[in-house]
Design a protein around this nucleic acid. Structure first.
Lengths: 113, 113
DNA sequence: TTGACGCGCAACTTTTGGTTGCACGTCAAG
DNA sequence: CTTGACGTGCAACCAAAAGTTGCGCGTCAA
């Protein structure tokens, strides 16, 4: 039923740019603000801000390596996020099915009136 | 892989207030801007703006009834949104499983070195 | 017919995603 | 060892979105 606690992860994952960043990080294993900005239509600074958001949400972790800062996805946390996404989807799906079932019941009752 | 086409539905459903509005509309069957604002921590005007967004995304439809305007969820469109949510989740899930499998393979190779 | 209710419009603030500009550390080549 | 290139961080600024208050207009019922 879309609990309030979920909002942190949801809002982190709700932004399209952040979703694509996660896609790229998953595909490449790791990345920096600069490397991600080269593959996305936004500036490095915008990426850096998003990385802060993702870091605060625990979805990525930074590992300073020399003059660069490599980010990597926290797989356990992303798995949690995926679970929450699908739980909201499942809740709506259940409601939709219930509605459909009720509608069909009403229809059946009408049929043999 | 988080296609760009999905962004419209995503952003409609990405906002926490709009998700709760959809929850309430599904639970009650229908509702007005005023009735929803009574059960959510925002003003009627804010709800009204969100209803415009949801309407443009095709997730709800309005039915003017006297002096009030009853909104109802478009079940087919919400079902599409649910499908897109779960497809993104599934894509990430697949990547996570692949990473896990690779990690396990490396571990096994290390084991009988 | 008059008051209460629901809605829409307009102006304003705050947050957020995005930008440009600049200064500071770090690494590698001369 | 120095210098230039590269990566990062910080700050000011802009635009769009979420939310607010205030007001006026239609509609229904007492």
């Amino acid at each position: 039923m879309t609990a309030a606690v979920d909002d942190d992860l949801w809002s982190a994952v709700g932004d399209p740019t952040r979703r694509r960043m996660l896609d790229l990080l998953l595909a490449d294993g790791s990345g920096t603000a600069t490397s991600l900005s080269e593959r996305l239509p936004v500036t490095r600074q915008a990426i850096a801000k998003h990385l802060v958001v993702l870091d605060r949400a625990g979805l990525v972790h930074a590992a300073p390596a020399g003059r660069e800062k490599r980010y990597r996805v926290d797989e356990a946390q992303l798995a949690r996020a995926v679970a929450q996404l699908s739980s909201v989807g499942a809740a709506w799906d259940a409601r939709l099915r219930r509605i459909k079932r009720i509608a069909e019941t009403i229809q059946r009752e009408k049929d043999h009136q």
